[in-house]
């Protein structure tokens, strides 16, 4: 029920935000001439696009969480017994996310070597996390927990899978950013460095978000 409220809050917040935008209270029929006072338009479209996308992903996972919590209250629910590997995987993702934060800081100071090393490390740890998740799947199947065995197993495979798919999408963007970072910089081209900085920044936002999402999922898996 709490998660249901959370979802309603999300939708409500977005719409209230829309209504609170000061411009919605203006009497545009009385205004003549050029008016510029846009709060959004100074941001890069990619940045706005990412936040809109995160809204969609939040909606998707919140709905899954609502169903998960409802279903977990039934008596036939058999939660995941062994979560040691998941703790290890979580550590990998935390390191990946932290490395991206370091890359972002390095970009803020214009240190290219810092971007390169931390960005690469972030990807490596993220890939290690994904491999660890697949390993966790193998452990589960070896213990006789298949997808159709119990709803708890079904949800585990489904949600970790979906989370992994989102990380894979992130890795696609990360691969492009990393390739750019390792290219020889052109001191003449300012937009190249700015573009790289923006992608590192947006990657870090996305990674922190997916880390947070994973922590919530992890808590759900172990607490029910």
């Amino acid at each position: 029920m709490n998660v249901t409220l959370l979802f309603t809050a999300l939708v409500g917040a977005i719409l209230v935000l829309l209504l609170l935008v000061r411009q919605l209270r203006t009497k545009s029929w009385l205004e003549k001439g050029i008016i510029t006072e846009d709060s959004f338009s100074t941001l890069a479209p990619k940045r706005v696009g990412l936040f809109v996308f995160l809204g969609v992903v939040t909606s998707l996972f919140l709905l899954f969480m609502i169903i998960y919590n409802e279903r977990a209250e039934f008596p036939d629910w058999r939660p995941i017994a062994d979560s040691r590997l998941l703790w290890f995987n979580t550590a990998l993702l935390v390191i990946g996310s932290a490395a991206l934060q370091l890359a972002r800081n390095a970009a803020g100071h214009g240190r290219l070597s810092g971007i390169r090393i931390n960005l690469t490390a972030a990807g490596v740890f993220t890939i290690a996390f994904l491999v660890g998740q697949i390993y966790a799947w193998n452990q589960l199947t070896a213990a006789g927990h298949f997808m159709a065995t119990n709803p708890a197993d079904a949800f585990f495979y489904l949600l970790t899978g979906l989370h992994g798919v989102h990380l894979l999408g992130g890795l696609f963007v990360w691969a492009k950013a990393t390739t750019n970072a390792w290219q020889k910089p052109d001191p003449e081209d300012v937009s190249q460095a700015a573009g790289l900085h923006l992608s590192v920044q947006l990657c870090s936002v996305y990674w922190h978000y997916l880390l947070l999402l994973w922590l919530v999922l992890f808590y759900m898996f172990t607490s029910t």
Partner: peptide
């Protein structure tokens, strides 16, 4: 498509095109 429409409305309005216009 939707990401595009929302971001375009937020970001790509021409000069003078406020929300209420």
């Amino acid at each position: 498509g939707g990401l595009n429409y929302v971001t375009t409305v937020l970001q790509a309005r021409c000069r003078g095109m406020t929300f209420m216009r």
